[in-house]
Design a protein around this nucleic acid. Sequence first.
DNA 1: ATCCGTCGATCCGGCACTTG
DNA 2: CAAGTGCCGGATCGACGGAT
Length: 303
Amino acid sequence: MQCLIWFALAIIMLRMIRDLDMTLIRTFVTTADKASMTAAANALHLTQGAVSQQVKRLEEVLGQSLFERDRRGLRLTRSGERLLDKARRLLRLNDEILAEIRGGAVAGRVRVGVPYDLVGTLLAPVLKAYAEAYPQVEISLVCASSPELAAALAAGTIDLAVIEERVGPSPGECLLIDRLVWVGARGGAARLKRPLPVSIVADTCAFRPAVLSALAEHGLDWRTVFENGNIDATTATVRSDLAVTTWLASTVPADLDILSDAGLPALPNFSVNLHLPKHATQPAAQAFAGHIREGLSRYRQAA
DNA sequence: ATCCGTCGATCCGGCACTTG
DNA sequence: CAAGTGCCGGATCGACGGAT
């Protein structure tokens, strides 16, 4: 009898809950992202048991099962899928409110200079993370070759720049060092043609002097196929086997080949450097610099 | 078939913190 | 200050996959 009373009370209490607990929402989103309670527990610095309990509490509050406990993992139920997007929005709003009210919010505008080949590869996750962390900052992205970005920074038309340079002394801060490699279509024949068809994204490209110098030293005849400053066009040219190109190893698309054994001249390593203006930088730019350092640190460790 | 490891669920006692 | 809440660490259980 007493059990029945307690059960009834619990049901009444649950029906009275009108507010979602942000802690439970965060745990739910993390668990969904990781597809594992153990992994979510590690990410949230909790124990697996605590995560299990929080998910269960949220399911009780909502009166819906959010996960299908399945064999060796978790899968979102339809209710879970419906909740996930809204839960993310709730978290973003929550974080935004906290940042604003606490007064330390970074706001304003940041103009970021990024080389063509890094914007969609190494820096894409950095840009995404920054935009999520500082939704009130307006980001202006300037894509250009590294020499053009250096000039723009000196002219004060951008607030910070990521610049690719030959490894060596630089006023910039080295974020990572990567191999410059020859790239061609998978199983393609362009690498064998003479003169070698070479596509370089732009004639001001930072890699161009090093590539031309290597070709000259190797005595290899070559010709330019496409140079209009468009990375997508260059990628399409290479993918179509019309030409080979040179990229940093960590930016090579998975469906293209790194031509390490094609008789092409060895290329030097390049440094990806962060350049900030000499005068004081805005908080939004400082925060962006921090995101880039953190975002590229994993590549630095992997290299 | 059996053993071992992993994962999630659940329970327990203890602890820290909050609330009334 | 007592009661309530939530977490932790530990233990145990069942389900399952992989190796032997």
